[in-house]
Structures are given as C-alpha cells and as structure tokens.
Simulated scan of single mutants.
Amino acid sequence: MYGWDSYMETIGLLVNERSDLAKRMVLNFCFCIKHYGKVFNANRTYCLGRTQPPFLTDMVLRVYEKIKHEPDGLTFLREALLATIKEYYTVWMASPRLDPLIDLSRYCPEGIGVPPCD
C-alpha cells in the first residue's frame, strides 16, 4: 500500500464504476487512523513514521458522491469523516508538522535517517 498511489487508484476506480473497491480503500485508511493514528505513506517498516499527503477527505467525498443512495451511505460518511477529523487534529495540527511560529502545517516525517536500500 502506498498512500499517494491509493488516492490515484481510488479516482480510477470511481471513474470505472468500482465504487465498492474505492469505498474499501477509504475504509482501510480509516482503519489505519483508528489503529495506528495516521494513514501511512506506505506499509513498509521504515515508512511507519511518515504519512501520506492529506487526501483522505477528498477520497471520502468522491466515494460518498457515488454511494450516497446506498443504505449505509451516511454511515460510511460519518465513519470516514470522523477518521479524517482525528487525523487532522492529531497529525496535521500537531507537532512536528504544525509550525507554531507561522501556524501552518508541513510535511515532516518522524523517522530518523534515510530508508534502507532494497
């Protein structure tokens, strides 16, 4: 899993009428936030301190637009938005990403050193 790739794949899935798979990708990201505190940049050990760019909200809204007529559409929206709110406050509006001097967030991995070569 790579976060940026998953975002692009979600857009492709929605274009190709596979909202079922796109929905599952969003729910997987929600699972990551619930259990690990963030959406990882990738699921490799040296990436566990990094996050993907904050695209989950856009993914949620795009998927919801396709599934809002389904019986669990609002439940999906609620669960996904709660996860995005959690990530917003605990990742993007917290140290080390939030710079208190300028009150802006930035990409800032938590890891130390360079990832190992494969």
Rank of each mutant, 00 (worst) to 15 (best):
C47Q: 10
M93R: 15
A22E: 03
T75G: 02
G37L: 07
L14Q: 13
P109K: 00
I85R: 11
L13M: 07
Y107A: 05
S19A: 12
A83V: 04
R50H: 00
D58W: 08
M1W: 06
W92E: 01
P96Y: 05
L21S: 08
D103P: 01
S6H: 12
T10N: 15
Y2E: 14
N16M: 05
C117I: 10
I33Y: 10
E70T: 04
L48Q: 09
G3I: 01
V114T: 15
G73F: 03
E110G: 09
L61E: 11
Y88W: 14
E17Q: 14
V60M: 13
C30G: 05
E79M: 06
E87I: 05
I67H: 08
R97V: 01
D72L: 00
E79S: 09
N41C: 10
Y36H: 12
G49D: 01
G3K: 06
R24T: 11
Y64F: 10
F76C: 00
L61D: 07
H69G: 00
N41L: 12
S105L: 03
V91S: 12
A42V: 03
H69A: 04
M93Q: 15
P96K: 02
F76R: 00
D72A: 03
V26Y: 14
I85L: 08
P116C: 11
F31D: 13
C32F: 14
M59Q: 13
L48P: 01
W92I: 01
R78T: 07
W4P: 02
S95N: 09
D118T: 07
L77K: 03
V15P: 00
Y36V: 08
F55V: 09
P96F: 04
I85E: 04
F31G: 10
A94R: 04
M93A: 15
G111M: 05
C32I: 00
Y2T: 12
L82Y: 09
V39N: 15
K86A: 10
F76N: 04
R50Q: 01
T84F: 02
G73E: 01
